[in-house]
Amino acid sequence: MVTNQSRTNQALPSPPWRLLGLYAALVVMVCASLMTGAVPLSVVQSLKGLVGGDDLAATIMREIRLPRTLLALFVGGILGVSGAALQGLMRNPLADPTVFGAPQAAAFGAVLVLYSGMAGALSVALPMAAIAAALLSFVVLMRIIGRQASVGAMILAGLAIGTLAGAATSIVIALSANPFAVTEIVFWMMGSFEDRSLLHVGLSLPFICLAMLVLLAQGNGYRALVLGEDSATSLGIDVSRLRWITLVAVAMGVGAAVAVSGAIGFVGLIAPYCARLLVGVDPKRILWPALLSGSLLLVMADVVVRLVPAQAELRVGAVTALLGVPLFMAAIRQHRSLFVEGAS
């Protein structure tokens, strides 16, 4: 019995201090995000502004910095856990909503309702349209590549869907009656948390939180899929159901995130990568750390864009792309063999 217990501990090599480090970093960055902005506020002023009062500090904290921080926290979290879930489902470290073209499709859905005059920028129709478009992009992707897709097929199909969605978006903008639409949409497409209100938070959080809970609950399924679909089925996992639950939840989360923050890429690739460094490769065990890493990454990126002196504020999507693209290329290099072996 003693031997078994000691082996139990051996088999769970997840040092809690690493996760604690992640929590601590997140708390520090959230505080930094609440303290960073054009108007310098002391810690006491910031705290007072958060909990009450109706002075300038309270307005800045509750109308500007709190919504911005909350959105970065939750959008980062859903993008991180979505990447981890898709990687578990596809059994592939390169799977990511951005690589699949889902954010681009979601952006198209949002732009379509926004610029066709069907809904305003603070209507629930906006996230719904983004979710529907993201889901449609997944369905098309799965129809193209099938279940046992090679990495190459997956990336190419994702590229095609992303490009198509981008083209469709530019057509919608060109046909739009609003002359400022082009500039506005180009900035929005790069992703940002600037000028977001608690209404944006309220609009997206229900979808994002539901998607997070659903994805976090699928860990056993992703873990069984390590052995392949046949073995997972024989272990009692309904693989087809798992696939649909994952795709619908990721579409819901990513769609809602894109609707309020624009297309922020590669968080779903970077966050699971960081989570694996912390807790190992187990597809179930990385879900929560990937969520936290995604949050940390976006809150951090959003602080960085506010600190860099620039004419117009840097876009958080540009920062994550700057970090994510080199990592993506490194991952492709590391998994080069997959492109050769998985040619079927």
């Binding site: 051996q10 088999a11 059994r91 052995l227 046949d230 009692g236």
Partner: peptide, 29 residues
Amino acid sequence: YLPQDRQAAWPMPVRELVMLGRMPHGATL
């Protein structure tokens, strides 16, 4: 059931992989 195509998508430790066989009994790591 042990299929002909034996895969391990992620580089997991052997003991954790074998523990997947206990999944039908409700056992997880």
